[in-house]
Amino acid sequence: MSPPPTPLVEVRQLLFTRGSRKIFDGIDIDIQRGKITAIMGPSGTGKTTLLRLIGGQLRPDCGAVSVEGQRVDSLGRAPLYALRKRMGMLFQNGALLTGMNVFDNVAFPLREHTQLSEPLIRDLVLMKLHAVGLRGAWQLQPSELSGGMARRVALARAIALDPMIMMYDEPFTGQDPISMGVLVRLIRQLNDALGLTSIIVSHDIAETSSIADYIYLLSNGKVVAHGTAQELGHSGSAWAQQFLKGLPDGPVPFHYPAEEYRRDLLTSVVDR
């Protein structure tokens, strides 16, 4: 038997704080090559933060983040930018560049990083837009798009340079059932046809578990469960059960960390 291939992304003993709050308290995550890995967890656990740590936009307080064997957390500017050219990231709200139409937005990374001729760029952009079903919308301004359309344009832009790794931050929110289905298939197709590695951050349990090969559940700065969708469904973890079934009561706190409710209400502001 051959040894298992090394993961494309390795997160080791990651510690990250915002102010006095520990967002991550020593987590380990492996993202396997060619697979779709989902990161799930309640709102505010730091899923977006995790993607930013992998992309090198934030630096951990402690621990290691490696992508393809390179330590992102200590990489210099030039190698980090070289690495990012091969990483695509879909932002939670699309983050399209205002002041450029849809076409120019998708063409932006091609024009910045390649010397391709305009006709070639035109063809590539139209192909990417076609893949997300928005070829007909190429001359619209970002302000003329709905939230779901903006996210799909952003997806076309993120895959423009044919990255080796795609990070999707909440790709499914704001999509109607049809485009949701299309997106799910698209993410799978992109992953398999282009040999990508994908990371999906989401709370849409049904869609995500239908395409994810492996799932990490995060809460309170820890990885509370991980495994395939099936393994998690049958796992004894109360945590996983609560999250997957959407139960209000259980180990997952609904509230942001706070003082005891009764005390909070009874103490006056002056006492603080």
């Binding site: 930013r52 939670q92 983050a95 560049l97 205002t98 910045e112 990083h113």
Partner: peptide, 18 residues
């Protein structure tokens, strides 16, 4: 400021554009 607030500057960084 608005480009920053709407994460456009972040998105550029992730596209390896300073």
């Amino acid at each position: 400021g608005l480009m920053k607030a709407t994460e456009q500057l972040s998105a550029m960084e992730m596209m390896a554009v300073d």
